[in-house]
């Protein structure tokens, strides 16, 4: 069976590079399953869970905001965060969520800061979503 080459690239590193069978992406318009020989497409992706299917195995990766470029043979995901399930620190993510919510509740933040806190919140929630699935 044909496979598709998935690459997940963050500003810090190339987080994932492998030939896989199917990828489930959190695209802007909803979740999107991509099989090999998909029609070429560029989309924005939202913080959330990216599921990679390779044979019988499934890898879950918490992903941040970014873009995905899909061609028939390649999927390139550019994101500001990519953490595999095993590497997620649940406690830290939980604390980050609490802190972010607390700061939003105080309401003393400028627009910039609200935007920044929201990004952190979305990323932490994505991590928790991946981790708590089991």
């Amino acid at each position: 069976m044909a496979t598709v080459r998935l690459e997940i690239i963050t500003p810090e590193a190339v987080a994932y590079r492998d030939d896989v069978d199917m990828v489930l992406l959190p695209a802007e318009l909803g979740e999107m399953g991509v099989y090999p020989m998909h029609v070429p497409l560029i989309t924005k992706i939202m913080p959330g869970e990216l599921v990679v299917t390779k044979g019988a195995e499934k890898a879950r990766i918490a992903i941040g905001e970014g873009f995905a470029e899909i061609t028939q043979t390649n999927i390139r995901v550019l994101a500001d965060m990519a953490i595999e399930e095993a590497q997620i620190d649940e406690e830290a993510a939980e604390k980050a969520v609490e802190r972010a919510q607390e700061r939003l509740r105080q309401g003393s933040l400028g627009d910039e800061e609200v935007a920044m806190v929201n990004v952190i919140l979305a990323k932490s929630l994505a991590q928790l979503k991946v981790k708590r699935r089991r």
């Binding site: 070429p40 560029i42 989309t43």
Partner: peptide
């Protein structure tokens, strides 16, 4: 140049 030049754009070009 990339092998494909025609991409579907989601949601649309301007937003992207």
């Amino acid at each position: 140049p990339p092998d494909v030049t025609e991409y579907l754009l989601e949601p649309n070009k301007d937003t992207l």
